[in-house]
Write a protein that binds this DNA or RNA. Structure first.
Length: 998
RNA sequence: GCCGGAGUGGCGGAACUGGCAGACGCGCUGGACUCAAAAUCCAGUUCUCGCAAGAGAGUGUGGGUUCGACUCCCUCCUCCGGCACCA
């Protein structure tokens, strides 16, 4: 029997699974379903790294296990292939992104197949395929065609809004009559209701690169690539009204089986806060300023107001004239921003603030601002209070204006300090004492100096104030969310085109469904234009079109040849969708990937998602925590819109979600040496390290000696050069020198990336899979270890020898009994002596076999794969000590191994049972265990005396409490330790332990 | 700063519901096989004392609850992650 050769068997089985479609997901109404989903990868040019197979192996184990348990399993894979890296690589190499994407997909697929995942490859999706993005566009049009009805708290078709307008059931914003409006005016009205709308928003515009950048691409006000200055500039962008769904997205989290920490991240991101909207009249009588506050109880302490620099009161043409021409009398110099008039001061400040990046705002928290020259009136106590502009107030939150209560808000307190503004205490820490304690006091307390609120605890004062404001029509209760609407357009080439056209009247019309997909036009030059125009503006033949509108009030357009009777001139939308679009709904397409009539049929959804009262959704979704708030929030949002429109079967897409932990590089030991070569203890250097390129061209750590500032450089050490001394590792050669020991995130620049292809080449896919799972709990961050891979590889070799024999001991060691007696699995009858041995060995293995099945089953159910693997190792070690392995034990082991290491399991199964009916061990049902066969006939029970271990006694498994106590007291060792002391209390935990309290 | 999570041998980790701490694997030590090495197999491996039998200590720190605490409660320390002028 030849030894374990992973390469030969893995290729063979992978080819068979593919050819025989072993893992096809088929809807079988007689079977329960299970949907095990992976976050599909972006097929980068780098190929797979060891982080990918971690989650993928985990879900694969569950998928294989569930199939064995009789479920119809959906376990698909696909490609999130639109995006910037492909486009940039395409620019660099002058290749079309389509070509690069295709190549990367092929590479990724080959790599995934080499790991032996049980995907149904016939369901593969690719977000860049027109047959796929056709439906991405279609779903976008559903959003475009939906408005959010606040009273019903759900999205409804635009057509229903139109009928409400037409029937007069809903008033138009400006009080007009719907029928009197022109078609253009009607479209303008509707655009304010749609979930997809155009708005002027500030973006990160980089003139140096000629493109808009994402926030993550801007560092210290400069572009990450090239270091060009980035400015905030308003641009008309597509937005999705996710804020309408804020409460639904928040409420929906409650029932999801997701990590609590991740739910919390989403809750924080949505950022619900309760409070009040309060209106302040301007002193000049020209209107009012509305603010949101969570502390309406402190309204009596509002001594000034602050508005964002972009606030309409001071930024738009209508508002500007409100600014007084001169500084009001007695305006302090410090309020004037070195300017001659309020208008000049405000303009100068606005300019300065616009040049500050978000990062700069965060870093310099010192308060800046300028007096606008305007005053407002505090609505409850009538004080005349100045209005400032400052960038500590953000235009994007609330109304972009605040009432400042310096006594009870740290930011307001600091600002008041800078500008010498009055600070009035309106909350006291104690009920009895008036003005005690330091300011600012931000915690709840008791209202003081607040008229009708005096003496009330903060919570009660809030409620009372809101009621008062509502009675007097000065304000109202209000819930505010941090969540912003989703900026949905990009000035990029490699993304989904929008299925929209702009008419000459400035309105936007959706294309009819039969016009989809709107294909990305082939472009030789897809470079950014250098202006604010998207690259698609260069596709002139594509950009300018003639359209016919259908008769519907909402208006849908069809592209027709220019000059067609009744056609209007139009221009296509030239932006593309962001990378998140395709991933928002891919889990739906898998269920019905080739459907050309629908994005996904309801029949497929009802089966695979379930739904109804029981929740429904994907049963298990595994992926990285980096998608906690973006992808996972965006897809929940789309799903809810589709749900409202009756297009999906359940309210939430992902019922259970697990984040796999990051895999770090192999542990590294680093000692720091000064220029003269002497080592310096890590305790003596600055904890923040830098990097430089070393003489060998590899990066190395640098730091400085804390006392002298002298430069020190890190040197990599071998584990054998260091030892543990107390809490720290030190050099063996000089124990006074502490060294650094830790694992780093894998990165190309650091050179510690582990490539799965290499691991497979050295040890095989089964060892890769096994080690990825054996490292530790799935959710945990853990370092890679090549020695650890060798460990699991050795386990597989031992297992192989254990069942199929070795050179020393050739022939299978598996034996089965029939009427003729014990035979080797290959049919050879054993000698009388061997028969007896085989029977004894089989009996010895029964209990272990049943325990193994119980343990592995339970561990898979709770996703504790590392402990399942150690149970299999233990079992294998047990079998290794026996001369013969019973066929029952071997079959159970091979079966439970299959989800983890499917190739070797298939091979062992086919070699041991070549006559088997099942073409694949994966088709053999999951084994059952008998609880009665898991227990020993005799237990060894530890005996404690007053909680301290003092001996062990053997008792029959069924022994009752009294019998166990008797046995414990009879034990000589226990007797000796009791030394005649009377036992006050006896405790027996069944099968676990005895405690005798003296 | 605020909010989470985690601290167990030389290392990754186990202990699922408060009940024998350290399973399993790596590493290391010794032995067998070998002319030798690799591979493999066997034994040992938390720390301290002891030739040994054994004794004592021990799950980041200090305290508490309990017959009994890695597990529950409080204090502090360290590390990791998220958010960060959100009114």
């Amino acid at each position: 029997m030849s030894g374990y050769n992973p390469h030969a068997i893995e290729k063979k089985w992978q080819a068979r699974w593919l050819a025989e479609k072993t893992f096809a997901s088929t809807r079988e109404s007689a079977k329960p379903k299970y949907y095990a989903l992976d976050m599909f990868p972006y097929p980068s040019g780098e190929g797979l790294h060891v982080g990918h197979p971690e989650g993928y192996t985990a879900s694969d184990i569950v998928a294989r296990y569930k199939r064995a348990c009789g479920y119809a399993v959906m376990h698909p894979m696909g490609w999130d292939a639109f995006g910037l890296p492909a486009e940039q690589y395409a620019l660099k190499t002058n290749t079309h992104p389509q070509v690069i994407t295709q190549k990367n997909i092929e590479r990724f697929r080959a790599q995934l197949q080499a790991i032996g995942f049980s995907y149904d490859w016939d369901r593969q999706v690719n977000t860049t395929d027109p047959d796929y993005y056709r439906w991405t566009q279609w779903i976008f049009l559903q959003l475009f065609d939906t408005w959010f009805d606040e009273t019903q708290n759900r999205g409804r078709p635009i057509a229903e809004l139109i009928s409400e307008f037409a029937a007069g059931k809903r008033a138009l914003p400006a009080g007009q009559s719907w029928d009197k409006l022109t078609a253009t005016e009607q479209r303008q009205v509707l655009s304010d209701y749609r979930l997809a709308y155009l708005a002027e928003v500030p973006v990160n515009w980089c003139p140096g690169l000629g493109t808009v950048l994402a926030n993550e691409e801007v560092i210290d006000g400069k572009s990450e690539v090239g270091g060009f200055l980035v400015e905030r500039r308003p641009m008309r962008q597509w937005m999705l009204r996710i804020t309408a769904y804020a409460q639904r997205l928040l409420d929906g989290l409650a029932d999801l089986e997701w990590p609590e920490s991740l739910k919390l991240m989403q809750r924080n991101w949505i950022g619900r806060s309760e409070g009040a909207e309060v209106e302040f009249l301007l002193e000049n009588g020209h209107g009012r300023l509305t603010v949101f506050t969570t502390r309406p109880d402190t309204l009596f302490g509002a001594t000034y107001m602050v508005i964002a620099p972009e606030h309409p009161l001071i930024s738009n043409a209508q508002g500007n004239h409100q600014l007084p021409a001169q500084w009001p009398a007695a305006t302090p110099e410090a309020w004037r921003y070195n300017s001659a008039s309020p208008a000049a001061a405000v303009a100068a400040y606005q300019k300065w603030a616009a040049g500050r990046s978000d990062r700069q705002r965060q870093e310099d928290t010192g308060k800046t601002g300028v007096f606008t020259g305007l005053y407002a009136i505090n609505p409850v106590q009538g004080a005349r209070i100045p209005i400032f502009a400052s960038d500590y107030v953000l235009m994007g939150y609330g109304s972009g204006a605040i009432m400042a209560v310096p006594a009870h808000d740290e930011r307001d307190f600091e600002f008041a300090g800078v500008f010498g503004l009055p600070i009035t205490r309106v909350v006291s820490a104690d009920a009895g004492i008036g003005d005690a304690g330091r300011l600012p006091l931000c915690d709840p307390g008791y209202a003081v100096n607040s008229g009708l609120l005096d003496g009330m605890p903060t919570a009660e004062a809030k409620a009372r104030m809101i009621n008062y404001l509502e009675e007097k029509s000065l304000g109202r209760r209000r819930v505010q969310y941090k969540l912003r609407d989703w900026l949905f357009s990009r000035q990029r080439y490699w993304g989904e085109p929008f299925p929209l056209v702009h008419l000459e009247d400035g309105t936007t019309v959706a294309l009819a469904d039969d016009q989809l997909p709107v294909r990305l036009p082939p472009l030789d030059d897809f470079k950014p234009t250098g202006t604010m125009e998207p690259p698609l503006s260069k596709a002139q033949g594509w950009r300018d079109v003639a359209v016919l509108l259908d008769g519907s009030a909402a208006g849908r357009a069809r592209i027709v040849p220019a000059g067609t009777h009744g056609a209007k001139v139009a221009r296509r939308e030239l932006n593309t969708m962001p990378q998140w679009a395709g991933s928002c709904w891919y889990y739906l397409r898998y269920m019905d990937p080739r459907n050309s009539q629908e994005f996904c049929s309801m029949a497929e959804q009802r089966y695979w998602l379930g739904g109804g009262a029981g929740g429904g959704g994907v049963d298990l979704y595994i992926g990285g925590v980096e998608h906690a708030v973006l992808h996972l929030l965006y897809s929940r949002f789309w799903h809810k819109v589709l749900f409202d429109r009756g297009l999906v079967a359940c309210a939430e897409p992902f019922a259970k979600l697990v984040n796999q932990g990051l895999i770090l590089g192999e542990a590294e030991f680093t000692a720091f040496a000064a220029a003269d070569g002497r080592y310096v203890s890590t305790g003596d250097i600055e904890p923040d390290w830098g990097t430089q390129i070393g003489p060998d061209g590899r990066p190395q750590h640098t730091s400085r000696i804390r006392s002298s500032g002298e430069l020190v450089v890190g040197r990599a050490l071998e584990a054998k050069d260091v030892e543990k001394r107390g809490e720290a590792f030190v050099l063996k050669s000089d124990p006074n020198i502490q060294v650094d020991a830790r694992s780093f995130k894998m990165s190309k620049s650091r050179g510690n990336v582990v490539n799965p292809d290499d691991v497979i080449a050295d040890y095989g896919a089964d060892s890769l899979r096994l080690f990825e799972m054996f490292m530790g709990p799935l959710e945990q961050v853990k370092p890679w270890s090549t020695a650890g891979v060798e460990g699991v590889y050795r386990f597989l070799q031992r297992l192989w020898r254990n069942l199929l024999g070795s050179d020393d001991n050739p022939g299978p060691r598996v034996a089965a009994a029939d009427a003729a007696g014990w035979k080797r699995i290959d049919g050879t009858l054993l000698s009388a002596q061997e028969q007896q041995q085989a029977a004894e060995d089989a009996a010895a293995a029964i209990r272990h076999t049943h325990r193994l099945v119980r343990k592995v089953t339970g561990d898979i159910e709770r996703l504790s794969f590392n402990t399942a693997i150690s149970a299999m190792m233990e079992f294998n070690n047990t079998l290794a000590k026996l001369r013969w392995v019973s066929a029952d034990a071997a079959a159970a082991l091979v079966r439970v191994l299959e989800p983890f290491a499917p190739h070797i399991a298939e091979e062992l199964y086919s070699q041991l049972w070549p006559q088997s009916q099942a073409a694949s061990v994966s088709l053999v049902p999951w084994p059952r265990w008998d609880e009665a066969l898991c227990v020993d006939a005799e237990l060894e029970v530890p005996v404690q005396i007053s909680g301290k271990l003092s001996g062990r006694v053997k008792v029959p498994a069924q022994a009752d409490e009294d019998a166990v106590f008797a046995a414990a007291l009879a034990d000589e060792g226990v007797q000796a330790k009791l030394a005649g002391r009377p036992v006050k209390k006896k405790i027996y935990v069944k099968g676990r332990m005895v405690n005798l309290v003296v």
